[in-house]
Every structure is written in structure tokens, then in C-alpha cells.
Amino acid sequence: MSETTRLARFVPYLLSITSNAVSERIAREYHSRFGLKIAEWRIMAVLGDTGEATQRELTELTVMDKVAVNRAVKALAERGLVDRAPNRSDGRSHMLELTATGRELHDEILPLALGLEERMLDGLDGPEREALVSALAKIREAATG
């Protein structure tokens, strides 16, 4: 694409295609090694950080469509990677949590995910990485706030 095109400097477009490229790269890796789709790994990653969450919380935290979250949770539960338990504070929802098998898989994948991130960010020095993380957080806040 020529640098003179409007899209070459249109930030929403750049964010979208960059996100798609990164997600596709990660998806290939996780699917070939672990049989996971990207949405499934996102759910596992969030549950690995939070310990447990409702499906609604997962939808908010991953910024994924609730149908995609539902499908991912169902697939993870069928594989024995996620457990569902009634939410004691809300009888209408369930708490989702990684099973022991899910935690083991999460702990196996996480170093690989971090290594993949390192390779993708290899061309950025420390301050550039911090600036990127900060800028992305600000853009997300502006988009959702």
C-alpha cells in the first residue's frame, strides 16, 4: 500500500489490520500446538489472571461478542479445561474457572505466548514498548468511554 493513501495513516484501520495480523499469527500457533481457537485462549488467559469470572465479565474483559464467549466457554468446558459453578451471589449466572487441567495448559501456553509477544515486539526498545502500551490503553479508553 502506498504511503500516500488515506488508509496508510488512518489509525482505526491500522489498529484493525494489526490486530488481525497478530491474532492470526497467535491463532495458528495455539491451534497447531494446543487445538485452541483464539477466543478460547483469550478466555483461558483472563481466567488465568482473574481466577474466576462470570460469562458477562468475560465478555467485558475480552471485548468479544457474547456469542463468541459462549461458544469458547462451551468448547473449553467440553474439553475439561473450564468448570462452571452456580454463582452464589446471583442465581442466574455461573462462575467459570479453569480446571486443574486447564490451569496446567494455561501454564504451558503462557511462556510461549510471552515468547511470541517478545518476537513481535523485538524491533521496539523499552521506551517504545511502554509508549505503545500506554497509547493503546488511551485509545481503548477513548473508544469505550
Results as ranks from 00 to 15, higher is better:
residue 20 N to T: 14
residue 20 N to P: 00
residue 22 V to Y: 01
residue 23 S to P: 03
residue 23 S to F: 12
residue 24 E to I: 14
residue 24 E to P: 07
residue 24 E to W: 15
residue 25 R to D: 14
residue 25 R to F: 13
residue 28 R to F: 07
residue 28 R to Y: 08
residue 29 E to I: 05
residue 29 E to K: 03
residue 30 Y to K: 04
residue 30 Y to M: 11
residue 31 H to V: 09
residue 31 H to A: 14
residue 32 S to Q: 15
residue 32 S to V: 11
residue 32 S to C: 10
residue 33 R to E: 09
residue 34 F to Q: 02
residue 35 G to C: 08
residue 36 L to C: 04
residue 37 K to L: 08
residue 39 A to M: 00
residue 40 E to I: 11
residue 40 E to M: 11
residue 40 E to D: 10
residue 40 E to Q: 15
residue 41 W to Q: 15
residue 42 R to H: 04
residue 43 I to M: 14
residue 46 V to H: 03
residue 47 L to T: 12
residue 49 D to T: 13
residue 50 T to F: 08
residue 50 T to C: 02
residue 51 G to A: 14
residue 51 G to F: 04
residue 51 G to Q: 05
residue 52 E to L: 00
residue 52 E to R: 09
residue 52 E to G: 03
residue 53 A to C: 07
residue 53 A to N: 02
residue 54 T to A: 10
residue 54 T to P: 01
residue 54 T to W: 03
residue 54 T to Q: 05
residue 56 R to M: 07
residue 56 R to I: 12
residue 57 E to A: 01
residue 57 E to G: 01
residue 58 L to P: 01
residue 59 T to W: 00
residue 60 E to A: 13
residue 60 E to Q: 07
residue 60 E to R: 09
residue 60 E to W: 03
residue 62 T to A: 12
residue 63 V to Y: 08
residue 63 V to R: 07
residue 63 V to H: 09
residue 64 M to I: 12
residue 67 V to G: 12
residue 68 A to K: 12
residue 69 V to D: 00
residue 70 N to H: 11
residue 71 R to D: 06
residue 71 R to A: 11
residue 71 R to H: 09
residue 71 R to I: 13
residue 72 A to G: 06
residue 72 A to W: 02
residue 75 A to Y: 02
residue 76 L to G: 04
residue 76 L to C: 01
residue 77 A to L: 07
residue 78 E to F: 08
residue 78 E to T: 06
residue 79 R to N: 13
residue 80 G to P: 03
residue 83 D to P: 00
residue 83 D to S: 14
residue 83 D to N: 15
residue 83 D to V: 12
residue 85 A to F: 08
residue 87 N to T: 02
residue 88 R to V: 11
residue 89 S to E: 13
residue 89 S to V: 08
residue 89 S to Y: 07
residue 90 D to W: 07
residue 91 G to Q: 11
residue 93 S to V: 02
residue 95 M to G: 05
residue 97 E to R: 12
residue 99 T to E: 01
residue 99 T to M: 01
residue 100 A to P: 00
residue 100 A to N: 03
residue 101 T to R: 14
residue 102 G to N: 10
residue 102 G to T: 13
residue 104 E to I: 05
residue 105 L to G: 02
residue 106 H to T: 10
residue 106 H to D: 10
residue 107 D to V: 05
residue 109 I to N: 12
residue 113 A to D: 07
residue 113 A to C: 09
residue 115 G to E: 13
residue 115 G to T: 09
residue 116 L to A: 05
residue 117 E to F: 04
residue 119 R to H: 12
residue 119 R to M: 15
residue 121 L to R: 08
residue 123 G to R: 06
residue 123 G to K: 07
residue 123 G to V: 05
residue 126 G to K: 08
residue 127 P to G: 09
residue 128 E to A: 13
residue 129 R to C: 05
residue 129 R to W: 02
residue 129 R to N: 06
residue 130 E to R: 14
residue 130 E to I: 14
residue 131 A to M: 10
residue 132 L to A: 15
residue 132 L to V: 11
residue 134 S to G: 08
residue 134 S to F: 05
residue 135 A to S: 12
residue 135 A to G: 06
residue 137 A to K: 11
residue 137 A to I: 06
residue 137 A to N: 12
residue 138 K to N: 07
residue 138 K to A: 15
residue 138 K to Y: 02
residue 139 I to A: 15
residue 139 I to Q: 04
residue 140 R to E: 15
residue 140 R to K: 15
residue 141 E to C: 08
